[in-house]
């Protein structure tokens, strides 16, 4: 087991190296550059800028310099936000996205699994139809519709909740409710469908039939045997879902004016803020591969069919 974990952990290194290398060159192939604007800078100022950020050097040299910096944990200065380094920007925005994402995913997880179980056990009854129609709505309506709609009704018309802002504003934690609700919606819907489907599958499996044949009570059958197997797909979904949700959603962060990394990520790509894009890609990849790594290990504990050698 520990051997597996070590081997698996070591394999993260080449993965990260390939990601850094690919994205370093890819972002530079995009047309335009970090210093383009409607009011073009003079040739001399452009040269000054390129020199300041070592962009006048050959690409290979820039790459090696960048690799060295990254190994030291230095993502360099942002080209767009010129008063800040990429490290500062990530440190200031990522925790906000993480907090919101964790809240939203926890909400989605509890509600989604609950609804999934009820639907599966009441298959083809009205509870099932109601829950699954709700889930279809959740999956199909985009966030940029749900968010502004909630804002309009609960924020502007009824004035129960703040329209936008962050916990730093005078509305405090109340600012979290609408964005967390919006963000959790598609995850909730997906988890509900996923858990329903896999629980249904498990209900029909041989080992559940065996458990029932042994005369176990329905409560024990469901609680001990069905759920354990039925929720495995949810666990494997959690890895990418968690890394996706905590690294921020452009739509939710923009609609609710949340100082998160999702907005920064998209802006940095549009601004060709090379160092900021790179820093965020690296952070995102690190989180993603780590989460998948953790999920793999947790899986081993949950699923008796899997053993690591």
């Amino acid at each position: 087991m520990s051997k597996y974990i070590i081997r698996r952990a070591l394999s993260l290194i080449p993965t990260m190296f390939i990601i850094v290398t690919l994205s370093f060159f890819l972002v530079r192939f995009a047309p335009g550059g970090p210093f383009s604007s409607e009011k073009k800078v003079t040739e001399q100022v452009l040269q000054n800028l390129l020199k300041k950020y070592h962009m006048d050097e050959p690409l290979g040299k820039q790459y090696l310099r960048y690799l060295g910096d990254v190994l030291r944990g230095d993502f360099g200065p942002s080209f767009r936000y010129r008063d800040s380094t990429v490290n500062q920007l990530i440190a200031q925005t990522l925790p906000n996205s993480m907090m919101l994402g964790t809240i939203a995913l926890s909400m989605a997880l509890f509600a989604g699994i609950g609804v999934g179980i009820v639907s599966a056990l009441k298959q083809n009854r009205w509870q099932d139809y109601l829950a699954m129609s709700f889930a279809v709505v959740g999956i199909s309506i985009p966030l940029f519709v749900i968010g502004p709609l909630l804002q309009l009704i609960l924020g502007l018309k009824l004035r129960w909740l703040p329209i936008s802002g962050w916990i730093t504003s005078r509305d405090g934690w109340k600012t979290l409710i609408l964005p967390a609700l919006t963000l959790s919606f598609p995850y909730f819907a997906y988890i509900a469908r996923l858990s329903r489907a896999s629980i249904l599958e498990v209900l029909r499996s041989d080992y559940v039939r065996t458990a029932r044949a042994k005369g176990l009570s329905e409560r024990v059958v469901i609680g001990k045997h069905v759920l354990k197997g039925g929720l495995l797909p949810v666990v494997s979904y959690l890895g990418p879902a968690f890394s996706g949700i905590i690294t921020g959603s452009l739509v939710v962060e923009s609609v609710f004016a949340i100082p998160g990394i999702g907005r920064v990520f998209v802006q940095s790509a549009l601004n060709r803020d090379y160092t900021l894009i790179m820093g965020e890609v690296i952070m995102y990849s690190l989180i993603l591969v780590t989460m998948n790594f953790i999920v793999d290990i947790v899986y081993g504990f949950l699923d008796p069919r899997i053993s690591y050698k």
Binding site: L156, I163, P259, R263
Partner: peptide, 12 residues
């Protein structure tokens, strides 16, 4: 405020 969503800003 740094909010860049003009619809949200107008609602605010």
């Amino acid at each position: 405020l740094a909010s860049d969503n003009s619809t949200t800003n107008y609602k605010m």
